[in-house]
Simulated assay, not measured.
Amino acid sequence: MTGTDGTRRIVLWRHGQTAWNLERRFQGTTDVELTDTGRAQARRAARLLATLGPDAIICSDLRRTVDTAAELAAVTGLAVTYDEALRETYAGAWQGLTHDEIMARFGEEYAAWKRGEPVRRGGGELETEVADRAAPLVERAAEKLPRGGLLVVVSHGGTIRTTIGRLLGLPSPSWESLGGLSNCCWSVLGESVRGWRLLEHNAGSLPEPVIGDDV
Rank of each mutant, 00 (worst) to 15 (best):
S60H: 06
A135R: 01
R43F: 11
T51V: 11
E101Y: 14
T162H: 10
D67I: 06
T65L: 05
P171K: 01
G158C: 02
A45S: 10
A141L: 10
V130A: 01
I160L: 08
D100A: 11
Q41M: 04
R64D: 10
E125G: 02
V119S: 08
E143Q: 10
G38R: 00
A46K: 01
G123N: 00
A46R: 03
E101Q: 04
L170S: 06
R166E: 09
G92V: 05
T51H: 04
V152G: 01
L150T: 12
T163W: 02
T81H: 09
S174T: 15
I58K: 06
L137I: 15
R63H: 15
E84R: 09
D55N: 07
T89P: 10
G169E: 02
G148M: 03
R120V: 15
G53Q: 06
A50L: 00
D67Y: 11
G116W: 05
E143Y: 08
L137S: 09
V119C: 08
G122Y: 05
G165L: 10
D83A: 03
E101V: 12
D61N: 07
C59S: 02
R115G: 05
A56K: 01
T128G: 09
S155N: 08
A135W: 09
E109H: 07
R166V: 14
I102H: 04
L52K: 01
A135I: 14
T162C: 02
L168S: 12
E108G: 11
G122S: 04
L168G: 12
A142T: 00
A135G: 07
A50D: 05
A111R: 07
R120T: 15
P54L: 01
L126A: 02
T76W: 08
G165W: 07
E143W: 11
D61Y: 02
G107I: 10
G122D: 05
P171F: 06
E88F: 11
E117Y: 09
W113S: 05
L126N: 05
E109Y: 11
R161H: 12
G122V: 09
D67S: 13
G124E: 01
G123M: 03
G92Q: 06
V80E: 01
E117G: 14
Q95C: 09
A74W: 11
A135T: 14
T89E: 15
D67R: 14
S174C: 13
E88D: 10
R147Q: 05
R63K: 15
T128H: 03
R140G: 15
Y82R: 06
